[in-house]
């Protein structure tokens, strides 16, 4: 099986086989990442550009390192020091970059749908590194890969997603991924942060955190954006922590082999206690490491799949 799309925009609509292909590819990439000399020549001569309209530590550096380990050239455009500040439109910005010969554009944007808009207007590959409240597909892939490493399976698991599902692209991508793979998803959070119609994606809504934690194999804790409180969506951070914060006491009721995950960055003491974040159940740092791995796999499938030979003629 080979990857057949120009772009990587979302998890929704992928098949089980396509996700498994990425995971299998990631397994061999992990082996590369664990070497002392990490560089392979697979994407030599290819150029990858990251364009981030939102702040990011892990996603951006993860993509850049993934590209570098595969020997691609990378450039990164920071919106704060680019011509965007002079009022250049999004389309003009990306057309400019494309004209310089990039092979793939990795984009993060606060407007949902931007990767589709770019894919429609560009001939290079477009990879979604998070768009608004829509999807963050590579995050879901690294989460799935992390679970696979620990649990050795991807189906018949019980996933509990806790927190601000409404504004979370991570939640949406994870819901799609786990449903495609044949696992069960429960979501739990303040009712004002549960989006309308989410049950149509095949998830169960439950507002009782302790019930949800009881039989979960994975506790996936979402980041709470602190400015949501100002909009009246919940009364206070204190009450949020009281109702939905994952504390050591709460974790006692969970299964002994439960995994605690968080996409980062964390608000320690709000959605997750430090004791939990740093506990033996937590795989948060593995998630970050695996971010590089799945992104290497994805870049390989999109840009280098079956064309490794090219490098020997150059």
């Amino acid at each position: 099986m080979v990857w057949k799309y120009k772009d990587f925009l979302c998890i929704e609509g992928l098949t089980k086989e396509e996700i498994e292909l990425i995971i299998e590819t990631a397994i061999s990439m992990k082996e590369i990442l664990n070497r002392t000399i990490k560089k392979v020549p697979t994407l030599r001569g290819r150029t990858i550009c990251t364009l981030f309209y939102e702040p990011s530590t892990r996603t951006r550096s993860s993509f850049e390192l993934a590209a570098k380990y595969l020997s691609a050239d990378t450039i990164s455009i920071s919106v704060s020091v680019s011509s965007v500040q002079k009022g250049e439109s999004l389309l003009d910005t990306v057309k400019t970059l494309e004209a310089m010969g990039i092979d793939a554009l990795i984009v993060r944007h606060n407007s949902s749908g931007v990767p589709y808009f770019l894919a429609k207007n560009l001939t290079c590959s477009v990879i979604n590194a998070g768009d608004g409240m829509h999807e963050h597909p590579t995050q879901a892939l690294l989460d799935v890969f992390t679970v696979f490493e620990k649990k050795k399976r991807l189906d018949n698991l019980k996933i509990a997603i806790i927190g601000d599902v409404m504004h979370s692209r991570v939640a949406r991508s994870n819901i799609y991924a786990w449903k495609i793979l044949g696992s069960e998803v429960k979501i739990c959070g303040p009712s004002t942060l549960i989006p309308p119609g989410i049950e149509d994606l095949g998830v169960e809504i439950n507002y009782d955190i302790d019930k949800v934690l009881e039989d979960a194999d994975i506790i996936y804790i979402l980041r709470l954006q602190l400015e949501r409180q100002k909009k009246g969506l919940f009364p206070s951070l204190r009450e949020y922590h009281f109702l939905f914060g994952i504390t050591p006491e709460r974790l006692k009721k969970a299964k002994p082999d439960v995994l605690v995950m968080h996409p980062g960055p964390m608000n320690r003491g709000v959605e997750i206690s430090s004791e939990v974040a740093d506990s033996i159940y937590s795989v948060i740092n593995e998630q970050v490491r695996n971010g590089v791995v799945v992104r290497m796999a994805l870049l390989y499938l999109l840009l280098g799949g079956g064309r490794i030979d090219e490098t020997s003629y150059s």
């Binding site: 829509h134 119609g197 149509d200």
Partner: peptide
Amino acid sequence: NWGKTATILGLKG
């Protein structure tokens, strides 16, 4: 529109 499609597309409804 507010509802399922807005949720799926991640747009404010």
